[in-house]
Amino acid sequence: MNASTSAPKRKLKVATTSLAGCFGCHMSFLDIDERILDLIELIEFDRSPLTDIKHCSTDCDIGIIEGGVCNAENVHVLHEFRKNCKILIAIGACSINGGLPAQRNSLDIRDILAAVYAQPGRGVHIPNDPEIPLLLNEVHPLHEVVKIDYFLPGCPPSGDAIWKFLTDLLAGRTPSLGHGLIHFD
């Protein structure tokens, strides 16, 4: 990296995805409204539902992930993010403690599927197409699978919280939310 302070800063590459989430955190991200124009001066989006790029570049700076880990595909995507992003951020309640999807953890996944796929008079047919990722026995938060560098809680975190968090981070400060912006719901 160039040591000169006068050289123009390169844009940071940001990848985002939703695993076992509802895209609510992504929607809230868009709630930063016109501030996205300031943001886009500082970053470029890599893999993200916003760009429809399917895989991370190998030199991403920041990965932002909403949702917990509920199936095998989630694990693969999470590994791809960890491998290619220098900083990984868990955003939203589900990524941080499993959230709503993890409330299924009190039940046995076999019982759930048997109940869901029971057809009157025709028994239980649980889909087994290899295209469909297998569900994990339990839903897990991201930090139980890979190392997570930052957590941004909320369901979803507000646009203001996301803005404060990202501006801190992009300015090189350790993000700090403070009262009113830190929320678990």
Binding site: A93, G99, L100, N105, S106, C155, F184, D185
Partner: peptide
């Protein structure tokens, strides 16, 4: 415990 704030 199981602390799922959004549904509490």
């Amino acid at each position: 415990g199981n602390h799922f704030c959004p549904s509490c």
